[in-house]
């Protein structure tokens, strides 16, 4: 899936996510949403990234209370396999 990513990119670990929605509210580009159609193993509807439009602002990363739920690959990020 790495190949067709455009950076900046926001990656949500949906298992770690608790569906609180804080990231959604924090996103200026409105590219995050709570996925009502999905339930993770803890019974939360997780957040998901629409796949494009991320500005790399980092708001969701700093707003998310779960340490590992959000990863934001900033502009200029070079994936390992390309290096």
């Amino acid at each position: 899936m790495g190949e067709d990513r455009r950076y900046p990119f926001c990656e949500i670990d949906q298992e770690e996510c608790k569906g609180c929605g804080l990231c959604v509210a924090s996103c200026p580009a409105k590219v995050l949403e709570i996925d009502q159609g999905k339930l993770n193993s803890k019974g939360f509807h997780p957040s998901s990234y629409k796949g494009q439009g991320c500005l790399g602002c980092g708001n969701c990363f700093y707003t998310c209370p779960e340490p590992g739920a959000v990863t934001v690959y900033l502009k200029g990020y070079v994936p390992e396999e390309v290096k």
């Binding site: 770690e16 608790k18 804080l22 700093y62 707003t63 998310c64 209370p65 779960e66 340490p67």
Partner: peptide, 19 residues
């Protein structure tokens, strides 16, 4: 469950922990 914190969804503790 070794990958999620014990905090409630949306709890501020997690944010401060991260900072």
């Amino acid at each position: 469950e070794k990958n999620r914190t014990h905090y409630c969804p949306g709890c501020g503790h997690g944010i401060l922990h991260k900072l």
